[in-house]
């Protein structure tokens, strides 16, 4: 009984919701990374760590 539940349910979840969820999640991540209006933010963030004033901003 327990075995049926785990195997059948997991296969069903993987083939339906699981598949869609992973595909949608991947697309969301790629969209976030490539969204044009974010590029400046990413660019600034990656360059900002090189500016080491070594004291906190207050």
């Amino acid at each position: 009984m327990m075995m049926d539940f785990s195997h059948e349910t997991v296969v069903w979840a993987a083939k339906t919701f699981g598949l869609i969820y992973l595909v949608i999640f991947s697309m969301a991540v790629v969209a976030y990374a490539f969204w044009p209006s974010r590029q400046k933010e990413f660019h600034d963030a990656s360059a900002a760590i090189l500016k080491q004033e070594d004291r906190p901003w207050r």
């Binding site: 991947s26 991540v29 990413f42 990656s46 760590i49 090189l50």
Partner: peptide, 24 residues
Amino acid sequence: LPIRAGRPIFSYRMSIISFWGITF
């Protein structure tokens, strides 16, 4: 690594995509 090399990371976008890939 970027700080010691004095250069920003090659692709910030790739670091984000790798992050979610590795996490999931």
